[in-house]
């Protein structure tokens, strides 16, 4: 039995960049706990002699030859963006707090 605390929910919400009103933390915790316990049923199956799969389809990936096929469609794509300048997408200023590895 897994039980998610309000703190767990706050953390998950933060990782997903979701804002959850304080009074909803409890109900989300209960719902997610139910989902987890539902999935938990899978853990009762004995999988000791089954090789783990990385993908539900037991297939290998088809690879692509190294060729440039895409053309420049910047104008088309940038029509969708709220703000662009000098070819760049503009976003609110970010400070390095969760930068790439």
């Amino acid at each position: 039995m897994t039980t998610l605390s309000e703190q767990d929910i706050r953390k998950i919400a933060h990782l997903a960049r979701l804002q959850i009103p304080k009074d909803e933390l409890k109900v989300h915790g209960e719902n997610l706990t139910k989902i987890l316990n539902f999935v938990e049923a899978i853990n009762t199956v004995d999988t000791s002699d089954i090789k783990p799969m990385a993908h539900p389809q037991n297939l290998a990936q088809r690879l692509r030859e190294d060729e440039v096929i895409e053309t420049n469609q910047r104008e088309l794509f940038q029509k969708l963006a709220p703000l662009t300048e000098a070819g760049l997408y503009l976003v609110p200023k970010v400070i390095n707090n969760t930068e790439e590895e």
Partner: peptide
Amino acid sequence: AAATTFGAEPNTQACAIDLGMPGVLPVTNK
């Protein structure tokens, strides 16, 4: 299949897959 040339004009080598548009699928370069 977008180009990797260094120093190109901004966003001229960023295709729908690179932009993470909905519904696109990555295909790995051999």
